[in-house]
Design a protein around this nucleic acid. Structure first.
Lengths: 99, 99
DNA sequence: CGTGTAAGGAATTCTGACACG
DNA sequence: CGTGTAAGGAATTCTGACACG
């Protein structure tokens, strides 16, 4: 329950031009953050598609960059978050099915 | 309260190609329904932008068309709904501020 | 490292029209 | 009436590169 993945927030339907308008970032920046693995758009026949969640994430990234945080550090933070989430997922599974 | 218009559902950010994929309708059909005033995308420099709400609405339209309902009839239904909503809005205002 | 820009090509979208019915 | 299609142009997006620092 709660996992409505079909939710508007996560559907990758927005083109880079619109994302640029929404975030105030240049297309160059957006593509670069992808290259640095901070963001992961879908590809529909070559052209990138972003979700509203991606847009929010890009705004976070923009804030961090303004504070002087490098893409490398942002990438590390993301990796750490993912690690924590995976651990939490395992613990959930553990206590739900075995605890 | 409740009126979070900034909600993902109503932001017009989706291009016609994606809407076509999402709804299964041809771009021709989508443009035609606009011509018949069943749908109202935004325009950003010429190109149409739709919201998820528009996408849902288009799916409703598609269903009605399959049932043989004409665009004219769908248009009438829409007009009627709008009339009812405006009436309701007036009544709200009436009872809230004067009742 | 992070971002701008010019370059050339590929994919997308637009409109108005003709077609069929 | 509702939709397909070919046509030509306009706007969008893509990549790889050079620039600066």
């Amino acid at each position: 329950m709660e996992h409505k993945d079909d939710s508007y927030k996560f559907k990758k339907v927005i083109s880079i031009g619109v994302v640029s308008e929404l975030t105030g970032l240049s297309q160059r920046q957006i593509r670069y953050y992808e290259e640095r693995k901070l963001i992961f758009p879908d590809r529909s026949k070559g052209t990138r598609k972003y979700s509203f969640d991606d847009v929010e994430r890009l705004m976070d990234i923009a804030n961090k960059r303004e504070e002087g945080v490098t893409t490398r550090e942002i990438r590390r933070e993301l990796t750490k978050e993912l690690r924590e989430k995976m651990l939490k997922g395992q613990m959930n599974a553990h206590f739900r099915f075995r605890g």
